[in-house]
Computed example of a mutant assay.
Amino acid sequence: MNRLILAAEVVERGATRYTPAGLPALDLMLKHQSQVTEDGQPRQIAMQLKAVAIGEITRPVAALALGTPAQFAGFLTASRNGKGLVFHVTELDT
């Protein structure tokens, strides 16, 4: 199963564009910071992840103010050029 749920904030948002099928698409950069336990030791996590919202989900994602914490759910896939991953956001919980 390929499912990711991530607590993050939008730190960059592109302009709404449209796919060849005519669906709205929104490119994002999400930022996550937290502390986890790994092998009994605390570890600070800080990362940024490329993301995209396609279809109806673009409306609520576009309405989020930059820096607002939210929970994003979706799936990971390879980027178009095959270098790196892109998180496709399919659900949003604010």
Rank of each mutant, 00 (worst) to 15 (best):
60 P>Y: 05
38 E>I: 02
45 I>S: 11
57 I>K: 14
82 G>I: 07
22 G>Q: 11
56 E>A: 15
49 L>Q: 13
45 I>P: 10
32 H>Q: 10
30 L>F: 07
28 L>Q: 11
27 D>H: 08
58 T>W: 12
83 K>C: 00
71 Q>F: 10
47 M>I: 03
82 G>D: 06
15 A>G: 11
20 P>G: 01
27 D>F: 09
88 H>G: 00
25 A>Y: 09
44 Q>I: 02
50 K>W: 13
19 T>H: 13
49 L>G: 03
43 R>P: 00
29 M>V: 15
4 L>D: 00
94 T>C: 05
24 P>N: 09
24 P>I: 13
13 R>M: 12
73 A>K: 08
73 A>Q: 12
69 P>T: 06
18 Y>Q: 08
14 G>I: 05
63 A>I: 01
43 R>V: 00
50 K>P: 15
68 T>M: 07
31 K>F: 05
36 V>I: 15
22 G>D: 08
7 A>Y: 00
9 E>H: 06
57 I>N: 15
17 R>K: 13
10 V>S: 07
46 A>H: 07
21 A>W: 03
87 F>R: 05
47 M>C: 13
83 K>Q: 13
79 S>Y: 09
72 F>Q: 09
2 N>C: 04
11 V>G: 07
61 V>D: 10
85 L>G: 04
25 A>I: 13
2 N>M: 03
26 L>K: 07
55 G>M: 08
88 H>A: 02
55 G>H: 07
3 R>S: 01
18 Y>H: 13
42 P>Y: 02
33 Q>K: 12
24 P>C: 09
5 I>N: 02
88 H>K: 11
30 L>G: 02
43 R>A: 01
19 T>M: 13
85 L>I: 14
75 F>L: 00
62 A>M: 04
93 D>R: 12
86 V>R: 15
30 L>D: 03
88 H>T: 08
27 D>V: 08
77 T>L: 12
30 L>Q: 04
90 T>C: 02
87 F>T: 04
39 D>R: 09
85 L>S: 14
62 A>S: 12
89 V>M: 08
9 E>K: 14
55 G>S: 07
56 E>M: 10
78 A>F: 06
84 G>L: 11
13 R>W: 04
4 L>K: 00
59 R>K: 12
41 Q>S: 11
92 L>W: 10
36 V>H: 00
29 M>N: 07
28 L>T: 09
11 V>R: 14
41 Q>I: 02
